[in-house]
Amino acid sequence: MLKLNHIHHVAIICTDYAKSKYFYTEVLGLKVVREVYREQRDSYKLDLEVAGLYQIELFSFPNPPARPSRPESAGLRHLAFEVDDIDEAVFHIKEYGIEVEPIRIDEFTDKRFTFFADPDGLPIEFVEK
């Protein structure tokens, strides 16, 4: 039987590298592991650390095609981060002018959660621990 250890990374392609880098490093507070410019692809690759465990790879490419998030379409639905205090997390990102949906309670887990979007409209979820 195949044994998967954990999720190694999530890759995200952005349309405005500077804006997305700011969002993921300054607003969400992810730590930069490495940043490289790949001249042959006219692309940046930014490796980001999440709480020392997982990694997000942020890519820039010239003119990537849009991928619809709403209405919900096939493919990756959203990226979710667990937070200790959802009220504190929401307050923090609202200070950056980011719109956040009302906090709801998951009917199956009884955990509080909410959604907002990154600069390209990728849905991001906060789930309270």
Rank of each mutant, 00 (worst) to 15 (best):
F61A: 10
F59T: 04
F116K: 11
K129E: 06
K21Y: 12
L2M: 07
F59V: 08
V10R: 11
F113Y: 13
G75V: 05
L46R: 10
G29H: 03
M1L: 03
I98V: 15
I124D: 00
Y22F: 15
T25C: 07
L58F: 11
P64M: 06
V32G: 00
L2V: 09
V33C: 07
E26Y: 07
D42H: 13
L53H: 11
E101L: 15
G75T: 07
R112Q: 01
E95I: 01
G75P: 03
K94E: 14
E82V: 06
D42T: 12
E57A: 13
A18N: 08
V83M: 12
K19V: 06
E82T: 13
A51K: 13
L48W: 08
H9N: 10
V33L: 15
F59N: 09
A89M: 10
P119E: 00
F61K: 15
V83E: 04
F116N: 08
K21W: 04
S60E: 01
D16R: 12
D47K: 04
H9T: 08
F61C: 02
A117W: 01
K3F: 03
L76P: 02
P65R: 14
E26K: 12
F126L: 09
D120T: 03
I13R: 02
I93M: 13
V33K: 13
A74T: 10
K21L: 12
L2R: 03
D47A: 15
R38Q: 08
D118Q: 13
T15Y: 01
D87Q: 11
P64N: 05
Y44L: 00
A74W: 11
R34L: 09
G52K: 00
V50M: 04
A18P: 00
E82I: 05
Q40S: 12
Y96M: 12
Y96E: 14
P119I: 05
E39Y: 01
E95T: 14
D120S: 02
D42V: 05
